[in-house]
Design a protein around this nucleic acid. Structure first.
Lengths: 239, 239
DNA sequence: CAGCATTTGTACGTATGTATT
DNA sequence: CAATACATACGTACAAATGCT
């Protein structure tokens, strides 16, 4: 693997283990370069990864301050699958696949993405149980051109794992939209909704490395269990 | 200003104006370096900014593909103030300050951040009207140690503008949390809530460059008008 | 399928500017 | 003012992926 990535991992681990405690300064870039026997630029790339993931804050003339990531224990936003989320949090969870078949794309999606009405998609519906309750209903549409089919086993365990490892697809980026919508009959039928009238819906358009659209997902969450956390940096100059 | 930032702005503008249309390739890094008369690394830094803001997708061996940012017209997540949001979208909006005074920190915040109970904060409550309706209720707490007071005028126009320009504070990063909560009497009193029983709450902890906590905000949104969009990149290797 | 040119990714080295202490 | 540390910029070399011949 890359040098800068290895160094990033090593530093991250040392921060997690409080070898570099929160509030302290990392060794200077020059020192780190000597310690790891690499050039300063390689160190800077590693530090940038730490910066983006909320591990450190850099200050010109001073150094790299270790942040208190304890209280920031979460999927620093980005594109993370349910499975990967669980792994980070050790919650008892379960996935139930209640639909897995190839069919024509729903009309509203064909329109939204300017696709032919007879486009084939692999349509998945999955329930996510946490502590025995159905908290999330996931509806996935995968373009059949790109993914032939999905073994139900894979959909239960890790869809992204299957797509990336087995199908050799490289997922690159996504546009995500968070809204609140009234519940549907389907929500009512499958989720443990109590008296809720609404669910939080996360709509994702997922794209491959070559910029082809490949997946559309609606992740429907019970209101009282929904939480999304992100670490954001201010971009003073960007706009 | 920086060269790489100027080049970023220039390229962004050219993409917006379709001089480099969506789906096309940018000139190669070497070509761009010659065009702008800078080194390749400077170009790469500019391209990285474009990458992070969702303007392009890079592919090794191929080039930088311009993305269809039209459909991604939004505040690419991050730390953006209400005022800045509006400016990007040209919506008729109005801010009404209904509270602006220095007082003791609320107990739950003192506990959450391990601050003394007698900590002073500037407490702001603001209503955000869009098209005549109160859609958002913002509750801000600014540490009095850092900000002495806020002119109501500034709280109406642009709090961040005031803090950054007048107070010379550098806002660096924030932890944001999105949840849905039952409405309070305060929500009921000030917002146009119809029959809603819940609001979307965005809780932000905002930190300065020197990592000092400086602001805590709860932004309470009417369900039916809440929308949050983000552009996310998959980090295959990061965890 | 092999080979080649093109393009991006990684890494190193050096020099200079700017902020902090 | 001096030393230290991060930021920017240029240049070079080689590796890896892509696309074309």
């Amino acid at each position: 693997m890359n040098k800068f990535y290895e160094i990033f991992r090593d530093l991250k681990q040392k921060i997690d283990q409080k070898e570099y405690p929160a509030g302290s300064l990392l060794p200077s870039e020059l020192n780190l370069a000597q310690m790891y026997n690499v050039s300063r630029e390689t160190i800077r790339k590693a530090l940038n990864l730490l910066l983006e993931s909320g591990y450190i804050q850099k200050q010109q003339g001073k150094g790299s301050i270790v942040l208190d990531i304890q209280r920031l224990q979460f999927p620093v936003s980005g594109l993370t699958s349910f499975k990967e989320l669980q792994e980070g949090q050790q919650i008892d969870s379960q996935t139930i696949v209640i639909k897995n078949k190839t069919e024509k794309i729903p009309r509203y999606l064909a329109e939204q993405f300017h696709l032919p009405e007879d486009t084939d998609v692999v349509s998945l519906v999955r329930l996510r149980k946490i502590s025995g309750e159905v908290i999330i209903l996931d509806k996935d549409y995968l373009l059949h051109d790109i993914v032939d089919s999905v073994p139900t086993e894979a959909a239960e365990v890790s869809l992204y794992g299957y797509l990336e490892k087995e199908c050799k697809l490289t997922i690159a980026y996504a546009k995500k939209e968070f809204v609140v919508e009234p519940i549907t009959q389907e929500d009512q039928k499958y989720m443990n909704l109590k008296n809720d009238t609404h669910v939080v819906v996360v709509k994702s358009e997922v794209y491959l490395e070559d910029t082809r659209l490949f997946q559309y997902t609606e992740s429907r969450h019970r209101l009282d269990r929904f939480k999304f956390v992100e670490f954001a940096r201010r971009k003073h100059t960007l706009l």
